[in-house]
Design a protein around this nucleic acid. Structure first.
Length: 480
RNA sequence: GUGGUCAUGGUGUAGUGGUAGCACAGGGGCUUGUGGAGCCCUUAGCAUGGGUUCAAUCCCCAUUGGCCACCCCA
């Protein structure tokens, strides 16, 4: 698959934000006589705390994250997307040229700084620009088109944090590059719809078309003229928008502006024939697969590269709360060209995983928990401890998940741990068993114990698990 | 970036102008061969910095952070 997640192994591989390499060079700090006295000195001062707007994703949340990430992988497989990973840092100019210099994201929300060589670099505030860059840079236009890519990872925006809004958040993104056909737009939304339905979420799809280079300039002119007439009634921001980015007038939430813009010309009424046709077909395809949507003439997005189809996914129909947007995307037919690639049509979307997880918790979704270990190895006394360690290793090599508390003394305590872990069988080795060359197996549920020949444990254990499995009581025995 | 609101152990909470209880969680124990119960012990906290005061966790100010609205967005 994608080499990122092994889909079923919880906690492995899909730790958000640190996909990829671990610091392998770390050994150097511990070798040699490099002074490192700070660690040994008594602490002075406070623990440097979590940066504003940052969030630890703790083990308790991992089941939710795994559920989401597994669903993402499943959708990717079902719709034939390939996984790509792009760097967290990019040249600042990449985002200026794609997202747009006058957008809020670039203007005031980017983490931008000069690196040691003096180049201006930025923490990525979104994915599409990087994926488009990768498409061009690696000549993916020579692959069969369209190129369908998906990715998962952290994005950074310097905003004022709120519930559901962080300075580092995680998105999954799907992009289809090199295909202009309207059916692709619909397919992406179908994928999303399917994703949400998998969690029994039925969010509201808001959709609009904002035209293309052909028809948008004329429309913007119209809109501008209209707004100009009502300038006195517009808020200060909107007067600014009138100059900078007139399309954004449409989604101002100030009641006054809202009122004024009610009578404004709508994008959908001023699309050129090609754009109109495209939009109508997208809607037809959506109807065909029963993806319900709401036509939202005020939906314009905060990134400049969008053309034609734009859409957002809202947690509920009436988007009152500010963080209701669960995802958003659209077509960006001009972006590749703008980044110096050949003219290449494309569509894509992004979904904020934190928000999805938040909603899942709110709705009482119970994520699948990782299966408990099958065995717990308990020991009494030092010789038994050694044998137990060996047994642990052998079981592990056979593919079993095995728990233990080797550092503990006392069987009582160890069984307590086994119980807490909901382990199926405890395997006990004590003084007596050492002498008899046996092992004690205890069914944790019934409390029934049996003595097994130590030499024959492996086949015996396998037999037991197979029996359990036949009764449908446990997860499959791993293949030998 | 603007406005509002809040801040007590890891978590959830009580309380006071004379430096703090409780519950859960964590650790240890109830004679180092038997878990799910119980009992006992124990770790751990007034976000930070100033000010007022004999005395501040409490009052005031600032900072930091969370949350809410705006902005923007996922």
């Amino acid at each position: 698959m994608n080499g990122r997640t092994s889909a079923t192994t919880a906690g492995k591989g899909n730790a958000p934000g640190r996909t990829g390499s671990s610091p392998r060079g770390g050994a150097s700090g511990w070798s040699g006589n490099v002074a490192q006295p700070d660690v040994l000195k008594p602490p002075s001062g406070k623990l440097p705390q979590l940066l504003r707007g940052m969030k630890d994703i703790l083990p308790v949340d991992q089941p939710y994250w795994n559920a989401v990430l597994n669903a993402v992988d499943a959708e990717a497989r079902a719709f034939s997307f390939e996984y790509i990973e792009v760097p967290v840092l990019e040249a600042t100019s990449l985002f200026k040229r794609s997202v747009g210099e006058a957008t809020d994201i670039v203007e005031k929300e980017m983490y931008t700084f000069a690196d040691k060589g003096g180049d201006s670099i930025s923490l990525r505030p979104e994915f599409t620009a990087s994926v488009a860059r990768a498409y061009i840079e690696h000549g993916m236009l020579n692959q069969p088109q369209p190129v369908k890519l998906y990715t998962v990872g952290p994005l950074f925006r310097y905003e004022r944090p709120q519930a559901g809004r962080f300075r580092q958040h995680t998105q999954f993104n799907f992009e289809v590059i090199g295909e202009a056909h309207s059916i692709v737009d619909a397919q992406l939304m179908l994928l999303l719809d399917h994703f949400y339905r998998g969690f029994e979420l039925t969010p509201s799809f808001q959709i609009n078309s904002i035209g293309d280079a052909n028809c948008r300039p004329a429309y913007v002119k119209l809109l501008k003229a209209y707004a100009q007439k009502h300038k006195e009634k517009l808020c200060e921001d909107c007067r600014e928008r009138l100059q900078q980015n007139p399309l954004r007038l449409l989604d101002c939430k100030q009641p006054g502006c809202h009122e004024v813009l009610r009578g404004a010309p709508q994008t959908v009424d001023h699309l050129c024939e090609a754009c109109k046709d495209h939009f109508v077909r997208v809607l037809e395809y959506l109807d065909e697969v029963d993806v319900s949507y709401v036509l939202n003439p005020r939906l314009v997005r905060g990134l400049d590269y969008y053309t034609r189809t734009t859409f957002e996914v809202w947690a509920s129909e009436d988007e009152t709360g500010a963080q209701a947007a669960l995802g958003g995307g659209g077509r960006y037919d001009g972006l590749i060209e703008q980044l110096c690639g050949r003219p290449t049509p494309a569509v894509g979307f992004g979904v904020g995983i934190e928000r999805v997880v938040h909603l899942l918790k709110e709705r009482g979704f119970t994520p699948p928990l990782p299966a408990p270990p099958m065995f717990f190895v308990a020991q009494l006394g030092e010789p038994a401890r050694k044998r137990a360690l060996k047994l642990f290793n052998d079981l592990r090599a056979e593919g079993y998940r095995v728990a233990e508390a080797f550092s503990k003394e006392g069987i009582k305590h160890q069984l307590e741990v086994a119980n807490r872990l909901k382990v199926q069988f405890a395997l006990i080795i004590g003084h007596k068993e050492m002498i008899d060359e046996t092992i004690l197996i205890r069914d944790m549920e019934s409390g029934i114990q049996e003595v097994l020949d130590f030499a024959k444990v492996m086949p015996e254990l396998r037999k037991r698990l197979e029996k359990l499995q036949a009764n449908g009581e446990t997860s499959p025995v791993p293949a030998a």
